[in-house]
């Protein structure tokens, strides 16, 4: 749930999603769900010439399972908060097991 919550804080920000097939799409993050499926608006494909089928596409839904990276706008990321959340997320399941 950590990254689902994290991505929700980035809605409205420009991101670049790079897929496992190397296709990279820049757009405004519209929504994200618990599978980390991502919806982008006003998209632009980074290497347009290689992917002519994307030319007429204005927004897209990307299935979370095909994502390799998401490049994020660094100023919008609170790294201290993220590290805290990551530490807490690890402690919870361990405590529940006892």
């Amino acid at each position: 749930m950590l990254f689902y919550s994290f991505f929700k804080t980035l809605v409205g920000q420009p991101v670049t999603v790079e897929l496992k097939n190397d296709l990279a799409i820049t757009g405004v993050l519209v929504s994200v769900d618990q599978f980390l499926n991502i919806k982008l608006d006003n998209i632009k494909v980074v290497d347009e010439e290689r992917y002519p089928h994307m030319l007429a596409v204005k927004n897209c839904f990307i299935r979370g399972s095909v994502v390799r990276y998401v490049q994020l706008p660094a100023p919008s990321v609170d790294t201290a908060l993220l590290q805290d959340a990551a530490r807490r997320e690890r402690q919870q399941p361990a405590a529940a097991r006892r």
Binding site: L19, N21, I25, I43, P52, M54, L55, A56, V57, K58, N59, C60, F61, I62, R63, S65, V66
Partner: peptide, 21 residues
């Protein structure tokens, strides 16, 4: 079946007409 979907996108009908393909 969903697992076979990479992405789906709405087609801009105006842009489609301008396609250089």
């Amino acid at each position: 079946r969903g697992e076979n979907v990479v992405l789906l996108g709405e087609i801009d009908l105006d842009k489609e007409d301008e396609s250089p393909l």
